[in-house]
Design a protein around this nucleic acid. Structure first.
Lengths: 218, 218
DNA sequence: GTAATGTTTTACCAATCGGTCAAATTATCG
DNA sequence: CGATAATTTGACCGATTGGTAAAACATTAC
């Protein structure tokens, strides 16, 4: 007798690892384009080169696939913000945060769009993660930024909106990629796009945040 | 004999205007949340308080509703960029562009999300508008900005990425509203949010774009 | 080997999807 | 009023949806 989906948690087969990996990869392709509601299990099955009931053998529902995907991706996604170091040099920290976020937009656009789709549609599946772990992490880093402001190391500004604007500007190149390409056209649409964006954003934020009034230089 | 959908173009009834208006309003509610694929005619019908076949009397297909909505909203959406004035004062023009875009994110979040959903999903229905009218408008305004740079009125920067970053930062407050609320929590989540955002973004862009090296002052 | 377990497929289901049709209802106009 | 056109509805259609059941097939353990 075959103990169906319960036994999986006891011992994981090599086949299970491979297939679950393949399914999540396909699910990322599909969910990142069409969002949860707009995606179908059949689409994911076809992308994975597997039959629909076979997918449902590994993930009981469409929602289970989505959730597994979110869980797997969320941790990595927040890595750059976590790396934000209170002890580091403010200018260097912000600069490298922008750079890392931009690299992620370039290298993991599907992951970016997965979250964008989810949040855009009201975040019905990740509300808890936003209000819990995400908020806590941002609160922590906002405090770091606030300390830099108090020390006069960067211009006086709202740390939350600073973080939002870095998220927005960098992820824009993943989420709105078609629009960026359409507007830039053939001329600047080459792979120099990301270098241009990096140069612009670094300039914008570095000049925009340079302390203006009081100086803390010894 | 009732001439169904052809006669509509000849003479428009009062009822037609009202019902089409009601349908598009409901369609905006639904499409802006779930995107084209994720939305159903039944959802729109329920939101409009009408029967499904009645919707389809006014718009032959789901796509026709979506297209009508896009067409109606796109023009208004680009208004702030169109208002960008080459003769005006660069600092004031950019500042008021940011402000107007932010006001639109606050007052028309559904419209913002409608486009965000569409572009995120590869812009299958508005590719032509992006590559045509939008690109032309942006090209024109980019030239204006480039002239300001040449005249030393603002810092040297890529005009396209400047426009992208204004789009990204302002629309973020409409498209990622749930996330913004979740992160800000109860404390700053009040309606002061938009004033705080406006203050931050104005500071960022004004300082970020102030000419640094050569001065053009007479 | 063979028996038990793990995996995959075929056939299927009820619900929902976008959309049609003809009949019923309502508004308009002379 | 009556006739004609405009609007609305209920019943329905084939395709697709998320998901199931059971048997066929493959793998592993002994």
């Amino acid at each position: 007798m075959t103990i169906p989906r319960a036994a999986k948690t006891l011992r994981r087969t090599r086949i299970q690892e491979e297939k679950e990996e393949r399914i999540l990869e396909a699910a990322l392709d599909v969910f990142s384009v069409s969002g949860f509601r707009g995606s179908t299990i059949d689409q994911i099955a076809e992308a994975a080169g597997m039959s629909k009931p076979n997918l449902l053998y590994y993930f009981r529902t469409k929602e289970a696939m989505h959730r597994a995907l979110i869980d797997r991706v969320l941790f990595t996604w927040l890595e750059p913000l976590r790396a934000f170091d209170a002890e580091g040099n403010p200018e260097a920290e912000i600069r490298s945060y922008i750079r890392r976020k931009l690299e992620m937009a370039r290298d993991f656009p599907r992951e970016s769009r997965l979250f964008a789709n989810e949040i855009l549609q009201g975040a019905p599946h990740i509300e808890d993660e936003l209000k819990g772990p995400l908020k806590e992490l941002v609160d922590e880093k906002a405090e770091v930024i606030r300390a830099w402001v108090r020390a006069g190391k960067i211009a006086k500004c709202d740390p939350y909106h600073l973080i939002f604007s870095i998220w927005a500007t960098t992820q824009h190149y993943a989420d709105f990629d078609v629009q960026v390409r359409a507007v830039l056209g053939q001329n600047h649409a080459g792979e120099g796009r990301f270098e241009d964006a990096a140069r612009f954003l670094e300039q914008l934020f570095m000049n925009g945040l340079r302390p203006r009034q009081a100086s803390s230089a010894p």
